[in-house]
Design a binder for these strands. Structure first.
Lengths: 351, 351
DNA sequence: GTTATGGTCTGGATCGATTCAGATGCTGGA
DNA sequence: TCCAGCATCTGAATCGATCCAGACCATAAC
């Protein structure tokens, strides 16, 4: 067993306080004594104050938790999530904090205990499924947190974009190009539905807030162009991955009258859609595709998409957490989005 | 202030032990009492046992630390690191552990304290600069760890590839194609050197173990083809990023007799090299480029590279940490590498 | 020769839980 | 009736530190 601070104190013949001070408050004891303590500690193989004991006494941990929905390994499949994380990491670093990655199990109780058991000073909530439940649990612990998806209370910290408006501009771009018969592609649009086309009575029924807002934005623009919600095809993917996107879209290619465009709720899904359409040959090649996020792969793929600042989102979130603004109004940060037009979108073929 | 377990105990009129058992060992008390305790706890707003106090007493934390060199935000710029992390995350998940991402400052003392202050049950060391110093600090804490770069002691846990052999096969591919005048590209080849060509007296002088091994592997193959070490151009990039790779290579394009191939120590550097060469126009387009890792972007870019299993590496590392093999020999896992030939490499132009 | 002043160092309380040996009361079997 | 056996609950010790009020001593000032 490794020696404790107490053992070092006894070995040197001083009080525990003094040894503690030798590490944490060098100005509280003479340099000579400090030197002697550190030296014997080294000889005894004392690794320094135990981090856990220290945080218990001090009342803070030095880590912020980042909450992800579903399996933790999925967190990294979306490059946008990685960019967000990069931003959080950057800010955490500046505040000498570590990052604790916390996967949220799908079941509500599991998610609850995950949040309750995390040893952290605060949370960044990146896209949690059961947003409300999670947030309540965090509030229950009395820890500060920042959300990045929708539904914050007025006094919550939040950083995000106008999802709906962003989606609307992507869709407007397509309506301007003449597209009317289109498919909207999201993941987990309705709970437990299989990949492919789906009947969604009302956008409001979609549980996942981000997906809901983006679909609503798409619908807005098409409504303005005279295409009502029931006339839009909705596709659901089983995951937010390229492969799942491809799988969902491949169901389309067999239709007698396939849509002239696919509007995806994320770039990974959009890239998957492109994969599926290209596999379909000449016919698929003329289908327009738009994404959302503007991840790095979007550029070489020529994907038209909505750009949102990923690192900035993460950075702002962590910064809000570390230095909460005195003014509650400054606790909500709205980041800009931009429509980036590339080669994946073009005029609708006239029928 | 949030109530503590003690407060709940007093409110219900039972001992603290009993409340503790209500949470941690339901079989130790009657269901009715347990129900009553949980109910009052809820009413009082008790968030459940404090994670920090719990880990102090229990002696374990439920988190593994992942150690990265340099700034944490860099950890995510290399897709290969992300894949490794994905693998670690997957295994950690299965063992109900969280991931604590730990950035290692460049200075030795900073790195030391970072390792000493991390509240974790063990470490995955992903590519640490001052490998030896870091490992000694971990050993000093008496915590288990797994390394992924070289220099393990015989009784250390390790998972990795034969870096040198992998690099050798990439280089052999190029020598077979007739390349003799080539440049080797790594990052931080020598400490604090500016981007571009560099004089390296001996490969052994390169501090970064992975870079050293790969350069040595390149050199092996060229030595076998009659090209001695001093005749190989060595380029250094300031970072392991695409941009830095491009910057390092752009210095080459102005040479009267540019190399016919660039062998990079990583795919991101290789992609940067391609960027720089393409910017150079027709001339650059005929320079062969090879990478290392086989990240996702390598495929669309047509990059010839050495594939190593990223997720598997991470998964094996975490698994070794959680279930240490009884047999010390099983503590070293060697993963395979494969040469993947794509369009970025071709025959050397005859001069 | 006192009294401030200030630098060092100590003791004991405390952070918030878990653990384990043992107290208590109840049931069933001999 | 008595005791073993079981389920239930308690108390005190413990995990490994940090914090704070005060003790102690030496020097400086009046």
């Amino acid at each position: 067993m490794k020696p404790t601070l107490r053992a070092v104190a006894e070995a040197v013949g001083v009080s525990r306080s003094t040894v503690s001070n030798a590490y944490g408050r060098p100005d509280q004891l003479s340099p000579q004594l400090r030197q002697r303590i550190l030296e014997t500690a080294r000889q005894m193989g004392y690794p320094g104050p135990d981090p856990t004991a220290r945080s218990l006494r001090r009342g803070f941990v030095g880590a912020v938790g980042v909450l992800f929905t579903s399996r933790l390994s999925y967190a990294f499949t979306d490059p946008f999530a990685v960019r967000f994380l990069t931003g959080v990491a950057e800010a955490a670093e500046r505040h000498d904090s570590n990052l604790l990655l916390i996967p949220l199990p799908d079941d509500a109780v599991g998610a609850r205990t995950a949040v309750e058991n995390a040893a952290v000073d605060g949370f960044c909530v990146y896209c949690a499924g059961d947003e409300e439940g999670i947030l309540d649990t965090i509030r229950g612990r009395g820890l500060p947190f920042v959300t990045t998806s929708s539904c914050p209370r007025a006094d919550d910290l939040w950083v995000g974009i106008d999802e709906r408006a962003g989606a609307r501009s992507a869709a407007a771009h397509l309506t301007a190009l003449g597209h009317r018969r289109v498919a909207l592609l999201g993941h987990d649009v309705l709970p437990d539905s299989p990949a492919g086309p789906l009947r969604v009575a009302d956008v409001a029924d979609v549980p996942h807030p981000t997906t809901r807002d983006r679909l609503a934005g798409f619908a807005d623009a098409f409504a303005a162009a005279g295409v009502a919600w029931p006339d839009l095809t909705v596709l659901t993917a089983t995951d937010n991955t390229r492969a799942a996107g491809a799988a969902a879209v491949s169901a389309l290619t067999h239709l007698p009258e396939p849509p002239t465009a696919v509007l995806a709720c994320s770039d990974v899904l959009a890239l998957g859609a492109l994969d599926a359409l290209r596999a379909d040959g000449e016919r698929g090649r003329h289908v327009s595709v738009t994404g959302f996020d503007d991840i790095a792969e979007a550029t070489p793929a020529g994907l038209t998409t909505i750009r949102q600042p990923g690192e900035a989102k993460g950075r702002s979130a962590a910064t809000l957490l570390f230095d909460p603004p005195v003014d509650a109004a400054a606790g909500q940060i709205l980041l800009p989005t931009t429509l980036v037009v590339r080669s994946s979108s073009g005029p609708a073929p006239r029928s």
